[in-house]
Measured scan of single mutants.
Amino acid sequence: RIRTTFTSAQLKELERVFAETHYPDIYTREELALKIDLTEARVQVWFQNRRAKFRK
């Protein structure tokens, strides 16, 4: 699998949801994935990585 490059619009939306909750449920992730045209798996991994970055 190649590395996913996020558009600024996708990042803006991901960060907006992250500001609300660091642990979005499956429904939130799936809805977000559809909205920004990514797979739910990519959204899930983005949140994992974002939480790791947040803890640092």
Results as ranks from 00 to 15, higher is better:
15 E>W: 03
47 F>Y: 06
32 L>Q: 04
2 I>S: 13
22 H>V: 05
10 Q>H: 01
48 Q>T: 11
12 K>Q: 12
39 T>M: 04
3 R>I: 13
3 R>V: 12
17 V>Y: 00
56 K>Q: 04
26 I>L: 14
3 R>M: 13
40 E>H: 04
21 T>Y: 05
25 D>L: 01
45 V>E: 14
30 E>K: 15
18 F>M: 01
37 D>M: 05
36 I>T: 14
39 T>Q: 07
56 K>R: 09
45 V>Y: 08
25 D>R: 01
42 R>P: 05
53 K>V: 13
51 R>F: 03
10 Q>Y: 00
37 D>E: 11
9 A>P: 07
10 Q>C: 02
31 E>W: 10
36 I>W: 09
41 A>I: 07
3 R>T: 14
41 A>E: 12
27 Y>S: 15
53 K>N: 12
13 E>F: 02
19 A>H: 11
46 W>G: 02
54 F>W: 14
31 E>F: 05
15 E>N: 08
25 D>T: 08
43 V>T: 02
37 D>W: 03
44 Q>G: 11
37 D>A: 08
52 A>T: 09
56 K>N: 12
49 N>D: 15
34 L>A: 14
15 E>Y: 03
2 I>K: 12
17 V>N: 05
38 L>G: 08
44 Q>H: 14
6 F>A: 03
1 R>T: 10
10 Q>G: 00
32 L>C: 02
1 R>V: 09
39 T>V: 05
55 R>P: 11
53 K>P: 08
54 F>C: 11
33 A>H: 06
52 A>V: 10
44 Q>P: 03
56 K>W: 09
26 I>V: 14
5 T>D: 14
31 E>H: 09
40 E>S: 06
38 L>K: 05
12 K>R: 13
25 D>P: 04
50 R>L: 02
53 K>H: 09
27 Y>I: 14
8 S>I: 08
34 L>D: 13
33 A>L: 03
51 R>M: 05
10 Q>T: 03
26 I>F: 13
41 A>P: 11
17 V>L: 11
18 F>P: 01
47 F>D: 04
19 A>K: 10
51 R>Q: 04
40 E>N: 06
12 K>N: 08
49 N>F: 08
56 K>V: 08
17 V>T: 05
28 T>M: 07
24 P>E: 01
52 A>M: 11
3 R>F: 12
53 K>G: 09
38 L>D: 11
40 E>R: 03
6 F>Y: 14
36 I>M: 11
34 L>I: 10
46 W>S: 01
22 H>F: 04
2 I>N: 14
5 T>H: 07
51 R>W: 03
36 I>G: 02
11 L>C: 06
14 L>P: 00
51 R>C: 01
19 A>L: 10
2 I>P: 10
41 A>D: 12
50 R>S: 03
52 A>N: 15
27 Y>W: 10
40 E>A: 10
55 R>C: 12
19 A>D: 12
37 D>P: 00
28 T>W: 05
13 E>C: 05
24 P>L: 01
54 F>A: 14
52 A>I: 11
51 R>V: 05
24 P>K: 00
27 Y>C: 13
48 Q>M: 12
22 H>C: 07
34 L>W: 09
8 S>F: 06
18 F>T: 02
39 T>I: 03
43 V>A: 04
45 V>G: 11
24 P>Y: 01
55 R>N: 14
47 F>H: 00
9 A>G: 09
8 S>T: 07
34 L>N: 12
18 F>I: 01
30 E>T: 11
22 H>M: 11
29 R>M: 13
22 H>R: 10
56 K>L: 10
3 R>S: 15
31 E>R: 13
21 T>Q: 08
44 Q>C: 11
5 T>V: 10
30 E>C: 13
7 T>G: 03
23 Y>S: 07
7 T>A: 03
11 L>Y: 03
20 E>M: 10
23 Y>I: 01
46 W>H: 00
55 R>H: 07
30 E>L: 13
10 Q>A: 05
54 F>P: 09
29 R>P: 03
11 L>I: 12
18 F>L: 02
31 E>P: 04
12 K>D: 08
19 A>W: 07
35 K>Q: 09
37 D>H: 09
43 V>E: 00
8 S>R: 10
1 R>E: 14
13 E>N: 03
46 W>F: 02
19 A>P: 02
46 W>A: 02
51 R>G: 05
52 A>Y: 02
55 R>I: 10
19 A>T: 12
39 T>E: 11
53 K>E: 15
42 R>K: 15
3 R>N: 09
27 Y>N: 15
54 F>L: 14
14 L>N: 01
49 N>V: 07
40 E>M: 06
25 D>K: 00
19 A>C: 10
